[in-house]
Simulated scan of single mutants.
Amino acid sequence: MLASCALALGALCAASAAAAAGYPDRPIRLIVPTSPGSTADVVARVVAENLGKALAQPMIVENLAGAAGIPGTRQLVSAKPDGYTLGIVSSNHAINPSLYKSMPYDAVKDITPISVIGTTPLVVVVAENAPYKTMADLLKAAREQPGKINYGSSGTGSVLHLAGELLKSKAGVDMMHIPYKGGNALITDVMSGQVQVAFLATPSVLAQVQAGKLRALAVSTPQRLAVLPDVPTLDEAGVKGYSYDAWISLIGPAGLPAGIVQTLQAATARTMQEPAVLKALSPQGFVAQGSSAEQASQTLAAEITKSQALVKAAGVAVE
């Protein structure tokens, strides 16, 4: 029996090595399940250009947006596990299983995690002429006027929505949620004051904050951001233990051979430290990683667990 197991394992390893031996020898399709210009899309295009160089094959980005990334990811999980169709997923991938009553795929079993590309810190913003000069001002007003202050997000169940729900829970405040279909209109309405406050991805609002069109009250990460050194963390601003950001990972369909995963992960880790990549993404607040495949799996599991609690607390569900 032991001999049979050893033979089977050896055959599996040999097959994996053989699959990776000439890989890649043609262009790689990279599915991005968000719209062009989104944070995930911007990051994906920078990574695809440079990862393609590391692999000596072009990576062709294909946007398949809609429904919190589900249609695009569904195509990815249906692809042949040969390393020539890969995908980008973000925090929504971990949120969707708790948000949607029915999913066309299993968010864990139907994918192969390759690497966490990096994370996108969130920033709490208000209009530049808003009465809230600090996070303490906002929280004080929210406590004095329960349910009167509104906060916007890019959609029900989105990472921006759950960031707000986590704030409500940890700070003990009640604010009204206003969901948008995407972030651009939300940013415009925050600047005009129609929406009083919002969590937004740092790359999407950094220019407006630096230009003085939006006021940043706090950042969502445990440490301050190099691009916004004067903006306190939520923990520093009195919301003890607050930590929440968006993440972006490279994945393949389930069954991707270990040898190909190793090739892709190693190339991704190198790519995320390339000066050209850091120069393009770091000034926007993106934190490059290039984690191991094991760490990517652990991140996904932890994020699914965290999202389950936040979705339940928010009391939201989508058919």
Rank of each mutant, 00 (worst) to 15 (best):
S4E: 14
A11H: 03
A11F: 08
L12Q: 12
A14M: 08
S16K: 06
A21M: 12
G22C: 11
P24G: 11
V32T: 11
A44S: 14
V46T: 13
V47W: 04
M59N: 09
L64Y: 06
Q75A: 08
K80G: 00
P81D: 06
L86A: 01
V89E: 14
N92L: 10
I95P: 01
M103E: 11
D106V: 10
V108P: 05
S115I: 09
P121S: 02
A130W: 01
Y132C: 09
A136N: 10
D137K: 00
E144G: 04
Q145Y: 03
Y151W: 13
S154Y: 00
L162Y: 08
A163E: 11
L167M: 14
L167T: 14
S169K: 09
K170D: 12
M176Y: 01
H177R: 15
H177W: 09
I178T: 13
I187L: 14
G193H: 02
V195H: 08
P203M: 06
P203W: 04
K213Q: 12
P229V: 10
I248L: 11
I251D: 12
I251H: 11
P253I: 15
A254F: 02
I260M: 08
I260W: 07
I260C: 05
V261S: 07
T263I: 05
L264F: 03
M272H: 01
E274Q: 12
E274C: 01
L278S: 09
P283N: 00
S292V: 02
L300R: 07
A302M: 03
T305F: 10
A314Q: 12
V318H: 09
